[in-house]
Design a protein around this nucleic acid. Structure first.
Length: 563
RNA sequence: AGCCUCAUAGUGUAAUGGUAACACCCCGGAUUUUGAUUCCGUUAUUCUAGGUUCGAGCCCUAGUGAGGCUACCA
């Protein structure tokens, strides 16, 4: 049995740079880092970064390379340990291991503070007393330079004094900040004397109330990287304009090494939103059930949806790393999901839209059970016995009163095989006043279990079924894309206006008895229907079976215009 | 408006000055007790205009289009 199609480890421009740095002797070991802020849940866009950073460390493991997990927790107002834990769980679930290399930017607060004092001493930083609004105004705009504020000309001694009083809590939030003294006329707005420290009186999840001043990302990040001796600091394209500031901080602070920031394109997926803010809006607005709603691109949502981690990792390899800001078709992701599941998921039978078939001549060759393979291509997965009796459920769409031309399944007078069991022939059927089929009558062809169809009998299809006597009712959640348009972010009425009203349909299905007893998280293929997983939150073995549709099977019948 | 970045089949990527290719999608066929899988096959690609060069997807210039930047967020 072959594994799922794991794409070969492709080279990309970042790995090229790393290979050069290794070859030239600039570095002998590579250190990368995945630096989430613990202010929300990880999504598949983060997975791309995780696969990149941890992937590189794994590829270079023989030279002692590693990837740190660092929490960039410099804004206590937004952060929480709850997120720290969920992020750790998600990284692990994806299959990556930071070993002992777990860090928090907040553990470097003293170092950051010393660096700030160093900058002040060097005349490279000053305490600003303007309000945020005043600063915005005096910073200028895209075409005109900024103007210096009174604080910019303070003496080193005064700055030292003011900054230490900021630290000791003498000032209120917003009263003053520490700014770098760089260039108010720079065409790069990030260099127009960016804020380095601000006053925040929130309780920090890690340092509690030890600090009331907190470093900004642009100050803390390069220093954190340098502290950890990171060689390549990989981030997304929106930080391109921050790189000069990153380098400025490194160049002007007493740091042991000089990491190199390299930017790559973040992941965009069609029919999907990736912004944390918008995801939060969906959660808070009740449009989805929570951060782990199976329709969300969050790692916890994808996990609950039944996406195997290797599918996500393979997908990340498949899309690669570039600086091109494109949008990847979700079809690529779904391919990897189907591909992984096709190889690993055992097959089971479930009827989502049941119609009862009564087998009138069952007594001619009655069976208690049939034996079917758990996987058509992988005998190692074994067989299982499924009870069967004189009445079975079949899928409503597997019967047509007046079959259209290429329809291979059941119809009046026609034959079909009950997968693993008899070939049956439809003899009659009942309809209600509305024309809905309520019952199908059929007869078994004795001697056809495990045998080819008898000469002269046309039987082109084997359909799935569930025994009426032993089948179990189950709640099935059929998920579809959350948005109706490819680019929800671009929707005129906003992304909320293009939510797919049919993104979740719940049906009560008939499932084979073994399925009612599986553990939550059990993945399988419902024969001919799709891949499903026992819901992590609501499925209870034996008492309350609940399954999520992970992804439907490809279906060239409906595609060709079949019903 | 200024600065930065990007542009290769429908989508994502490769080709590192020397015959434009791979995966997905699409379409067709074979096999199939899943209209799945697997296998085989088909269609289609270098944004535009100049320049350098024996030779340009690749280097240069200009244009066009897309993204980013004017937070005491990251």
């Amino acid at each position: 049995m072959s594994d799922s199609t794991s794409p070969p480890a492709k080279l990309d421009f970042i790995r090229d740079i790393i290979a050069e740095d290794l070859a030239s002797g600039k570095h002998s070991t590579i250190i990368t880092r995945f630096p989430p802020e613990p202010n929300g849940y990880l999504h598949i866009g983060h997975a791309k970064s995780i696969c990149l950073n941890f992937g590189i460390a794994l590829e270079q493991a023989s030279s002692g390379s590693k990837c740190n997990l660092r929490f960039d927790d410099t804004n206590p107002e937004k952060e929480d340990v709850e997120y720290v834990e969920s992020i750790k769980a998600d990284v692990k679930w994806l299959g990556f291991d930071w070993a002992e290399n777990l860090y928090f930017a907040s553990n470097y607060f003293s170092f950051f503070y010393d660096c700030a004092v160093h900058l002040i001493r060097e005349g490279k930083a000053y305490v600003e007393s303007q309000s945020a609004e005043e600063m915005r105004a005096s910073r200028g705009n895209l075409t005109t330079a900024g103007t210096p504020s009174p604080g910019r000309s303070r003496s080193v001694e005064e700055n030292l004094d003011l900054f230490s009083r900021m630290k000791s809590g003498e000032f209120k939030e917003g009263e003053c900040v520490l700014r770098a003294k760089i260039d108010l006329a720079s065409s790069n707005m990030n260099l127009r004397d960016p804020v380095l420290y601000r006053i925040l009186n929130s309780l920090h999840h890690n340092t509690g109330d030890a600090w009331c001043i907190y470093p900004m990302y642009d100050f803390a990040h390069p220093l954190g990287d340098a502290m950890e001796q990171v060689t390549h600091s990989l981030c997304t394209l929106e930080f391109e304009n921050h790189r000069p500031l990153y380098d400025w901080v490194i160049d002007h602070c007493p740091v042991p090494v000089k990491p190199r920031q390299i930017e790559f394109a973040r992941l965009n997926l069609s029919y999907t939103i990736m912004s944390k803010r918008k995801l939060l809006e969906l959660v808070q607005g009740g449009n989805v059930s929570g951060w782990n709603d199976p329709r969300l691109p969050t790692i916890s949502g994808l996990r609950r949806r039944g996406y195997p981690p290797e599918a996500i990792v393979n997908f990340c390899k498949r899309v690669g790393i570039t600086k091109f800001n494109g949008t990847t078709d979700v079809a690529l992701l779904e391919f990897d999901v189907r591909d992984a599941l096709n190889h690993s998921a055992p097959r089971r039978m479930a009827v989502l839209d049941p119609v009862k078939v009564v087998l009138s001549n069952w007594v001619e060759e009655p069976l208690n059970a049939v034996e079917v393979p758990n996987h058509p291509q992988n005998p190692e997965m074994g067989n299982r016995e499924i009870p069967i009796s004189s009445e079975v459920w079949i899928e409503r769409e597997d019967f047509m009163e007046v079959p259209e031309k290429k329809f291979y399944r059941l119809g009046p007078g026609r034959h079909v095989r009950l997968k693993g069991g008899h070939i049956i022939r439809c003899t009659d059927y009942d309809k209600d006043a509305a024309g809905v089929i309520t019952l199908i009558r059929a007869e078994i062809l004795p001697g056809t279990v495990g045998a080819d169809s008898p000469v002269g009998i046309e039987c082109r299809a084997a359909i799935h079924w569930v025994d009426v006597a032993t089948g179990v009712d189950a709640e099935i959640r059929l998920y579809d894309r959350l948005f109706t348009v490819e680019d929800p972010d671009a929707a005129e009425g906003g992304f909320l206006s293009v939510i797919n009203p049919d993104s979740l349909k719940k049906v009560t299905a008939k499932i084979e008895p073994s399925l009612a007893r599986v553990e939550a998280g059990f993945p399988c293929q419902f024969d001919r229907t799709g891949y499903f997983v026992a819901d992590l939150a609501d499925h209870h073995p034996g008492t309350q079976p609940v399954f999520n549709r992970t992804v439907a099977l490809k279906d060239s019948w409906v595609k060709k215009g079949g019903r």
